[in-house]
Simulated scan of single mutants.
Amino acid sequence: MDRINRILIHPEYKQAMNKNFKAERKRIFCKHGIEHQLDVARIAYIMALEQGLHFSKEVIYAASLLHDIGRYLEYEGKLSHEEGSVLLGKDILIDSGFSQEETGLILDGIKSHRTKDSDPKSFQGIIYMADKMSRNCFECNSRELCNWTEDKKNKGINI
């Protein structure tokens, strides 16, 4: 997991996470900090193992750590957060030692992490599902204020 630790200390990653934190400081639901990223990583890794998918732990964790780093760009009205995350993530992945093939797979997962139609046995599909499953809507104090429609909210444990 050396490359994952390189992501965590990468100056651009730290700067993006700080900007996200500041942008979401007053947000009362669904923040996108390290806790969310690690939940997505753990869920995606379990899903991959259960389905017999052969994605490395580092590739899954890299996509999970980077999938929302462009959130602040969306709040600023510059790009969708998945586009911003792809843009920011590419150099971080290269600097952290991921191959061109791994980088492409990770960036595809980031780009489509909000795409419901992804094949559930694909890399994009497990990142999408893990992102959604990581939300504990059933215990959220701000559930009534949430902008997710009722059919999107997690109403219980669904792993």
Rank of each mutant, 00 (worst) to 15 (best):
M1Y: 14
I4Y: 01
N5I: 00
N5T: 02
I7A: 02
L8N: 05
L8R: 08
I9W: 07
E12K: 12
Q15L: 10
N20P: 04
N20K: 06
F21W: 08
K22I: 12
I28A: 06
F29Q: 03
H32A: 06
H32E: 05
Q37G: 09
L38A: 02
L38K: 07
D39K: 07
R42S: 13
Y45W: 07
I46P: 00
I46Y: 11
I46C: 06
A48C: 09
E50K: 12
G52T: 01
L53A: 06
H54V: 13
S56P: 03
V59C: 11
I60C: 01
A62N: 05
S64W: 05
L66P: 00
L66M: 04
L66T: 02
D68R: 06
R71E: 14
G77N: 09
L79G: 01
L79N: 09
S80E: 11
S80A: 13
H81C: 10
G84H: 00
S85M: 02
L88T: 07
I92R: 08
I92H: 07
L93M: 06
S96G: 12
F98C: 11
S99N: 02
E102Y: 09
G104H: 11
I106S: 03
L107I: 10
I110S: 04
I110N: 01
K111G: 12
S112I: 08
R114L: 15
D117Q: 13
D119P: 03
D119K: 04
D119M: 02
P120I: 13
S122G: 14
F123N: 07
G125I: 06
I126F: 06
Y128I: 04
S134L: 07
R135K: 15
N136V: 12
C137A: 04
F138Q: 10
E139V: 10
C140M: 05
C140N: 04
N141I: 14
N141T: 13
N141F: 13
N141Y: 12
S142Q: 10
S142V: 03
E144C: 02
L145G: 05
C146L: 08
N147T: 14
N147W: 15
K153L: 07
N154K: 01
K155I: 10
